[in-house]
Structures are given as C-alpha cells and as structure tokens.
Design a protein around this nucleic acid. Structure first.
Length: 275
DNA sequence: ATAGGCGCCTGCTGGC
DNA sequence: TGCCAGCAGGCGCCTA
C-alpha cells in the first residue's frame, strides 16, 4: 500500500492524536510480522511519552522520551490508527498500544503482514539501523548534482532507479509511474541515457507528484487509510497507474502496462518515448 | 552491477 | 455458480 504520501499522511494524522500522550500496555497477536515482536519491548514502551513523530522514506518513527524509539513500516497493507478502545478492532490487528488511561488506543493492523514494528532502546541503535538501511535522500531534498550522477552511473531503467530506496527514499510503484509520465520519460530508459534537462524534469516531477498526492492525503486503492481512518483521494488523479487501455489524458493513446523491474509499469507510449 | 526469480502473507478478481 | 491462477501499494535474499 503505502508510499511516501500515504506514510506522510499517517504521520501528520498521528501527531495531533498522539503527541504528549503516554503508551501503556501493549497487546500482541499470535501472528508474527516481518520482524517478530520482542517481549522486552513492552517494558521499554510502558509509560513513555510520545515526544515526536517523524517519517524517513516509508518508515514511521515515534520518538519517545528517554530516547526510546518505536519504528513502523506499513509494508503493503499496514494501517496505523488511533481509535476509541470501545470500537471493535478489525481482523488482522496485530499490535494494540493502550493510551493513557485506556480510553483510546494506537492500533497496527496489517492483513498481509509484510509490515514491521521495532523498538530501539536508545537513539544510537536507531541511527545504526538507518545507517545500515542506506536510505537515499528525501525526494524534497534531492540534490540536483547527486541525482544527475546517480542516473549517469547506471544502466538500470529509470523505473528501477526510482524504486531503489538507496537512491531516493519513499517512491514506490504508483508514484514512480506517475512521476515518469509527468516528466514524459519512458520507464525503461536507461539511467545513463538520461540528459541533464531530462534528469531535472524527472526530479521536479517527483516532487510535484508527491506533493499533490500528500495534498490529497495519499492514494487508497484497497487497504490504505490514514491514522484517522479516512481514505486518501489521489487515486482519482492517477494519469497512468492502473489505467491500462484507458486513453492517455494528454494524447488519448491507450495506456500500456508492462512488466519492468519486477513490477507492473504503466505509461503512454506516445508521450513517453524510448530513445 | 544488474536482472530476474522467489518468499513472505491474505484477499480479491477475472477468465474459464 | 464455482474454481483457481494471477495479481496487489514492499522488501530482502538468492542466482546467473
């Protein structure tokens, strides 16, 4: 499900609901997530106040007082919501953090369980974790020179480069396709065949597409909801993603779907020519 | 270095 | 109507 705009929306919606509040008892389902929940984590979290909520790429970071950090990845179908405790939790709810005196709770629901939740006992371990992940810059802080160099040094397709979290953090399958359409570049174009103006166009397109998606609170196709439980609306703005055989909104040529970098890839063969 | 395949999971859809 | 292959917003690991 979630790429940068969805994760950013979750973070923005979590802030007013969680900041300054204390996490209390944690209950854990018997199904393991991508990383198994450690028993001792509950003790580290209990009674800790949420000091800040941040995003890095597609990762959500809850900074607690005492430098404890709860880090969540939503995988494909993860949902992080704050709900009244009396409201029934959906199936596949794997983690429930009681808040304050228990009137509300933070819930992690994940049907496919590709998501993860990890606790770091101090900031040093958090830094080590992200160091190892080698995440590239945030798209909004993507240095032009760095971006040009990353493209110039590779024969990989633009689509593969956009999906590589080490090059730029946060772009996934939807926004890769939408950005390439916006920049009028063919997804299969090799990085090193990309001119400086094209690289600049793509860099601008990524920022524009992501910002517009954030404004619409992300895209809800199947599972995605924000921390408030509300769906996103950017799926209405898709120009290529999921629009196979539908007319291109620029030139009316039917949108093509192909397999690239292991993912379904949508583009307009008229507007996005391969050199 | 890079492409491709698989595995991790569940649920839904489309074609027969 | 019913079945099942194929596919889905992610990511890490393996092989060639």
């Amino acid at each position: 499900m979630p790429e940068l705009p969805e994760v950013e929306t979750v973070v923005r919606e979590l802030r007013p609901r969680l900041l300054g509040r204390r996490l209390q008892a944690v209950s854990v389902s018997r199904h393991r997530l991508r990383k198994p929940w450690q028993q001792q984590w509950a003790g580290l979290l209990r009674g800790r106040r949420v000091a800040a909520i941040r995003r890095r790429g597609k990762w959500i970071i809850l900074d607690l007082d005492n430098q404890v950090h709860l880090v969540v990845h939503l995988g494909m179908t993860g949902q992080l919501t704050v709900k009244m405790s009396r409201e029934a939790a959906g199936t596949h709810t794997h983690l429930v953090f009681r808040l304050d005196r228990g009137r509300q709770e933070l819930r992690f629901r994940d049907v496919r369980r590709f998501g993860s939740a990890t606790v770091f006992p101090d900031s040093r371990r958090l830094e080590d974790f992200f160091q190892k992940a080698e995440l590239g810059p945030e798209p909004f802080a993507l240095p032009a020179g760095y971006w040009r160099e990353q493209l110039a040094r590779t024969t990989r397709s633009l689509k593969a480069v956009l999906l590589d979290q080490r090059v730029v953090a946060g772009v996934g399958n939807i926004y890769a396709d939408e950005s390439l359409f916006q920049a009028r570049l063919h997804p299969a174009q090799r990085g090193r065949d990309t001119s400086a103006p094209e690289a600049a166009r793509l860099r601008r397109a990524i920022v524009q597409v992501l910002n517009q998606a954030i404004e619409r609170r992300g895209s809800s196709i199947r599972d995605y909801i924000g921390a408030s439980g509300q769906q996103g609306e950017y799926q209405r703005e898709f120009r290529v993603y999921g629009r196979t055989d539908e007319p291109c909104l620029r030139c009316a040529t039917p949108i093509v779907c192909m397999r690239l970098a292991g993912r379904s890839t949508h583009y307009c063969r008229q507007c996005q020519r391969l050199k």
